Computed example of a mutant assay.
Amino acid sequence: MTAVSQYAAVALQIAARSVERLADRAAASQQMLAMIEQIGVKLRSSSVFVQQYGGTPVKLAVLPEYVLTSYPGRISIPDFAAKAALDIDGPEYQALGKVAQSQQLFLAGNAYERDTHFPGLYFQTSFVVGPSGDVVLRYRRLNSMFAPTPHDVWSKYLDIYGMDGVFPVARTEIGNLAAIASEEILYPEIARAHALRGAEIFVHSSSEIGSPLMTPKALAKRARAMENIAYVVSANTAGIEDTTLPLASADGNSVVVDYKGAVLAEANTGETFTAFADLNLDALRHQRRKPGMTNFLARQRLEPFAAVYGATVGQPANGLIENGQVKVPDRNHFLRAHEAVIERLAKDGLI
């Protein structure tokens, strides 16, 4: 593969579409495949304009969070897994692969996904599909309020995938890519763990409240970029269709942030490709290899913090493993677990 040190990246801000009202998996899959076809058309037209405007070919496109299905709502976990979660070799990934292959770019996105090792569950997965049409990165969200995560089945997950499957970094011709899912941009450890494994570009699929004010996520995107000397390409939804929420509840502010924390481009509201900018890997790598007060990666001392992290238990591992078996939880399981952690931390005088 031929390395590309400078190229355009676009955060494609489009509306997510809920599958909640659809009758069954066949109807859900039909709608998802139709959406992927529409995404391909919109992305191709957007890429043509970006190149005409800036003169640089688009090599990376990021889609919003759960764009094909919207959030599960109160649908039970096994029911949503059966109805809407993608199979890792299913037709939806094949269709996304055709888009990436036909347009010769890396296509990042986010979807709920089934795993045959964990029947009845699903994981929220951020993925990158390469120009070959193959998935080159698959990251499963670790912090989620109402959904299973790899940490909930930690011992079994590590046996199957190891740490490379927990914090994957795709080393590609357009740089080292890693994914951050939705509100995980608020957790510095997620981005830092990827950066310590070589990540240079964070693809961030989100569905969040847009605002002209500085939101917590907007602030976090700048911070994660600056402290890790990494680009952040963050795509937000342009609203969520076919739910009971007002359409534009999660709309706007898709953004590209450079490795110094500066915003290179930001979208307004509605469906748009206008959050696009050139990424310069040579400049990023020069910054990482240059001694100075702003080289946060090289200056970070890790050992002093290991003992503190190791001695403090927040959300416990293996919350969905019982007597060595994976159990399928009800929705309220996660709230009960969250409340138990708060109670324990308060009892220990830590909060």
Rank of each mutant, 00 (worst) to 15 (best):
M35N: 14
D24H: 00
V19T: 13
Q31N: 04
G40N: 05
R25G: 02
A26E: 07
V19C: 10
R17M: 04
A23W: 01
I39R: 05
S29W: 09
M35G: 14
I39A: 03
S18T: 03
S18V: 02
R25W: 01
S29A: 15
Q30K: 15
Q38L: 03
M35W: 12
I14M: 07
R17C: 08
A27L: 04
M32L: 07
L43N: 01
A34K: 12
V41E: 12
Q30P: 11
Q30W: 13
R17Q: 11
Q38M: 08
A15F: 09
Q30N: 15
A16M: 03
E20F: 04
E37A: 09
Q13D: 07
Q13P: 07
I14D: 10
A26I: 02
M32P: 10
E37T: 11
D24R: 00
A34N: 13
R21D: 07
M32D: 12
A26S: 12
I36N: 09
A15T: 11
D24N: 00
A23Y: 01
M35E: 12
I36V: 15
V19F: 05
M35D: 12
E37M: 03
L43Q: 03
A16N: 07
R25N: 06
A27T: 04
V41W: 10
R17T: 13
A28P: 00
S29N: 15
Q31V: 09
I36M: 12
R17N: 13
A28T: 01
L33W: 15
M32T: 08
E37N: 09
L33N: 14
Q30E: 15
M32W: 09
A16V: 03
S18R: 02
A26Y: 00
R25K: 14
R44L: 09
R17S: 14
A34D: 14
R21S: 13
G40I: 05
K42V: 01
K42R: 05
I36T: 14
E37D: 10
Q38A: 10
Q31Y: 03
A15V: 09
I14G: 06
S18N: 02
D24Q: 00
G40F: 08
R44M: 11
Q13W: 11
A26N: 07
A26G: 07
A28V: 00
E20D: 09
R25C: 04
Q31D: 06
Q30I: 10
A27P: 03
R25I: 05
K42I: 02
A16P: 04
R17P: 08
L33V: 15
Q38N: 06
I14P: 05
Q38R: 09
Q13V: 05
I39C: 08
E20H: 09
I14T: 10
E20P: 02
A15L: 07
K42E: 08
R25Y: 02
A27Q: 06
R44A: 14
S29Q: 15
V41L: 11
V41H: 11
M35T: 12
Q13F: 08
A27K: 02
A16L: 05
L43D: 03
G40M: 06
V19K: 04
Q13N: 08
I14Q: 08
A15C: 06
A28M: 01
M35L: 12
Q13H: 11
A15D: 06
G40W: 10
L33K: 14
R44E: 14
M35A: 11
E20S: 08
G40S: 06
M35H: 13
